[in-house]
Amino acid sequence: MENTKILHNKSKTSSNRVRKFKLSPMQKNIIMCFLSVGIAAIFLFPLYWIVVTSLKAEPEVFQNPPTFIPETLNFKSYTEQLSGDFNMFQSFKNSFVIATSTMLLCVVLAVPASYGIGRYRFKGRSLFLLIFLLTQMLPASVILTPLFIIFNNLGLLNTQIAVILADATIGIPFSILVLMNFFASIPKELEDSARIDGCNRFTAFLRVFLPIAYPGGYCLCNILFLICLGRLSIRYDIYSRSNSKANYCWYIQFYGSIWYIMELFNCICNSHHSAGTGYFYNYAKVYN
């Protein structure tokens, strides 16, 4: 009896002592929130700087010392994009066509392949996987020169087809690696029951597995589209830009708007206006 009392007292005093140093969960939460906002603010300062720069008038951009808030808001660089040399809509059309067709090509080739690898245990399966994994790790400069020569021989240089084919080489292994696990997770019994109901292996794939894989495939399409747009944006001298209205995912919208702003910044600084270099040449330049 006494013992428990002492223990009780002891724990009370110790918890009292601790309470002096400990903050309440609420206070802790607030401090952490402020801290995280601070970290994000420092980390994302470059992006803020670029948005602010795009809104400054030209003399203010190169002013020393720099101003952190624009003295006068200037939307000239934005309106300039809608007309004249940097016609946004043409380049948007290009990037949209290329991103969409790359996405379609990747999906058409990668969905059956990932189904095959994920669902069937055939010989050499792990070798195929290894090959697809290794292509993910390939430095682009390895295939750059040969692709340049191949496309030159085929007369595909400076066409959109060359870009689509080259972009798809990145998209296909990626899609297979993503979708493979998805197909592997679908229960095998589904196929058995489909076959009992009169499907062969291909119709089972088309009528049963494809509809089930729809959400995964849809998600993958979005990611691929994003990747393709990103790759295109990298080819900054062909002025391909994204129009956020036409994209269908919020993150692509977000992405597109940043990209858009950056392109504007690019135009303000007037540094990279070497138009006329072909698609593939640009592709080659920044493919990595």
Binding site: L109, P112, G116, I117, F122, K123, I172, R201
Partner: peptide, 11 residues
């Protein structure tokens, strides 16, 4: 399981 080859082949 060998039918898997046919699915992987195009890619």
């Amino acid at each position: 399981d060998n039918i898997g080859y046919l699915f992987v082949l195009p890619a």
